[in-house]
Nucleic acid binder design. Structure first.
Length: 270
DNA sequence: AAATTCTCCTGAAGGC
DNA sequence: TGCCTTCAGGAGAATT
């Protein structure tokens, strides 16, 4: 499923192919995504020049002279650029036509979103209350430590809270906590500033490493069989319950924390 | 305010 | 072989 590294890889993959092109049409085959795709989108976009594609959290932002198209991949969404005449396959819900190119959204589970923003995009309701980007300087151990003060939620839930920091999904939460040696169920307010500095560094390193491999992940992600491939091999604990901890050799455990599967080494993570 | 639960949806996996 | 059930998962909304 697309986490931050995969969304960023998607952005890097499509941006050179679509930036600077003019919209020649919009096709909405299935408007019922997480929210309805606004019926006004085709009229608003057709004829406009697509200037830039940026990312905020897991949202892709398509900047036009007049407004911004917000796109979220949910958990099963994927984007690719295909020749304009390519016939759509199942779950191909949305096309942005750019001359002979077509930017196509496929999303079997329809948890994704396509929305429009008129004003300053940072003030959009979906973006306005988001925490810092994990790879920015605004995100560090001090920030986590301050945010956690007086709170009791499990640290795994805490770092998956988009008001605390964006882009840390279920997989990378487990991986980062393993890297930092912190037990996922530990109350977030009972972790030292020093350990939060380690955790912030682990989150950055884990996401950066995944972005490095994102290209491979993306290609595999587009394969017909849908296997994640390369990406999976680099995971140290996620999905590996019962296997050996790569650090101490003990058994990796799986446990539900906040309704989500969490993987950790009870020996290395305290 | 913070934390938990509910919700959208469908493919995959497991049980019989 | 195939039908039925269960579950996962991003994240906003609703609820406690």
């Amino acid at each position: 499923m697309p986490e931050l590294p995969e969304v960023e890889t998607t952005r890097r993959g499509i941006a050179p192919l679509v930036e600077g092109r003019r919209v020649t049409g919009v096709v909405i085959r299935q408007p019922r995504l997480r929210w309805p795709v606004p019926e006004t989108v085709p009229g608003l976009l057709t004829g406009q020049l697509l200037r830039r594609v940026t990312r905020r959290a897991k949202y892709l932002l398509f900047h036009f002279d007049q407004g911004v198209l917000l796109l979220h991949l949910g958990m099963s969404g994927s984007l690719r650029v295909v020749p304009a005449e390519t016939p759509p396959a199942a779950h191909d819900h949305f096309d942005l036509l750019l001359g002979r190119h077509c930017l196509r959204l496929r999303d079997p589970r329809r948890f994704g979103a396509v929305l429009w923003s008129d004003g300053p995009v940072a003030a959009h309701p979906l973006l306005a209350d988001l925490g810092p980007e994990p790879l920015s300087d605004a995100f560090d151990g001090d920030w986590l430590h301050r945010q956690a003060r007086g709170r009791r939620a499990p640290v795994k839930n805490f770092i998956m809270n988009s008001k605390v920091v964006v882009g840390v999904g279920n997989i990378y939460a487990s991986e980062s906590l393993f890297d930092a040696g912190i037990h996922p169920a530990r109350p977030c307010g009972r972790i030292s500033r020093q350990r939060y500095q380690r955790l912030a560094a682990s989150i950055k390193a884990t996401l950066e490493a995944a972005i490095e491999q994102g290209g491979t992940t993306l290609r595999d992600f587009h394969q017909a069989d849908g296997r994640p491939g390369y990406f999976e091999q680099s995971l140290k604990v996620y999905g590996r319950a019962g296997e050996d901890c790569p650090r101490c050799g003990g058994a990796i455990r799986r446990r539900m924390i906040g309704q989500r599967s969490s993987y950790y080494c009870p020996n290395c993570q305290r």
